[in-house]
Structures are given as C-alpha cells and as structure tokens.
C-alpha cells in the first residue's frame, strides 16, 4: 500500500474504532449517576447551606450534624424510569430542627448533569426555599443559600 494511504489509515482506523465503540455502548445507561451518590451529596450540602441560612437570618445557630438531613431522590417522578443518569430528579430532604420527633421535608427539583454536578431548585416549603433572597438583621437582603443549591459529586 502506498505510504500516504497507510499514514491516513493509521489515523482514521483507531478514531473510527473508538467512535464505533462509543456508539455501541451509548445505548446502555449504566453510569455512576446513581440515587445513592446524589442523595449523599445533596443531603450534606443542604445541611451546610441551611446552617448558613440560619446564621444569616440571625436565628439561633444550628449544626449540620444536628440536622441529620437525609435526601431521597427519584428520577422522573415515576417508578418506570431507569433510576440513574443525567436529567431531572425529584428529591425530598428530611431534616430535624426542633428535635427527633419533628422532621421537616424540603422538596427540590434537581437537574443532574453528566459530569455529576447538579442544580437543585427549591420547591417548598416556602419559608425555607421559596424565596431567592432572605432578610438578615438590619433588613439586609442576601441570597437565600438553600433556594438554588449548586453541588457536585464524584462520578469516578
């Protein structure tokens, strides 16, 4: 085979093979964007942000440990959808403010991207994450930390 053609083949062949391999596996959706990882990350991030929110509102301090926040997430809202991968997830975060007997549930619409980062939009209760801003001492308006939660988890 002429040298020029051989050179071109040397470049195109592995690229084509790689592309075909990618396409072949593209249909499968086994990935590390699992409910477990999302829940762990969202729960912990919410706890830290809630602590921040309470301190900015001038309320009595709370601790992340004391909140014991647990997230429970479902993709697509129904049970038929495959529970992994990027897309819209509905999450509920259960946490304790006034003691073990009184759990509060905060709801979020979570957009999960393929790189393991997510943006969680607050969906209730209104007093917690309904408003983009909160009022601190001296009537200062600041960003509500739990209104929009940006977080990331490890996908490797």
């Amino acid at each position: 085979m002429r040298r020029a053609a051989r050179g071109r083949l040397a470049i195109i062949a592995p690229l084509a093979a790689g592309a075909l391999a990618l396409l072949a596996t593209g249909c499968s959706s086994s990935s590390n964007l699992t409910p477990g990882r999302l829940q762990a990350s969202l729960g912990a991030t919410f706890a830290n942000l809630y602590v921040l929110q309470q301190s900015e509102m001038g309320n009595p301090p709370v601790t992340a440990v004391g909140l014991d926040s647990q997230a429970s997430c479902q993709k697509g809202g129904t049970l038929d959808v495959v529970q992994s991968g990027s897309g819209v997830w509905l999450c509920e975060i259960t946490y304790l403010v006034a003691g073990p007997g009184y759990p509060v549930i905060a709801k979020y619409n979570v957009n999960v991207q393929t790189d393991g980062c997510y943006a969680a939009d607050g969906d209730g209760p209104a007093s917690v994450n309904g408003s983009p801003t909160i009022t601190g001492p001296g009537y200062k308006q600041v960003v509500n930390p739990v209104y929009l939660i940006d977080g990331c988890f490890d996908t490797t």
């Binding site: 790689g18 990618l22 596996t25 593209g26 499968s28 959706s29 086994s30 990935s31 590390n32 991968g85 990027s86 393929t114 790189d115 393991g116 980062c117 990331c152 996908t155 490797t156």
Partner: peptide, 22 residues
C-alpha cells in the same frame, strides 16, 4: 458530553478534564 453514556465514555472526551476542579 450531554449524551447519556457510561463513565469511561465521558472520561475519554478531552472536554471532561476541564471540569475536574469541581
């Protein structure tokens, strides 16, 4: 990268390491 694919597929793309700082 927006397409749904297994982890190794994402990892092969040269754009993915730009986000490693997350």
């Amino acid at each position: 990268t927006l397409a749904s694919m297994p982890e190794w597929g994402q990892q092969v793309l040269l754009s993915t390491p730009f986000m490693a700082w997350h």
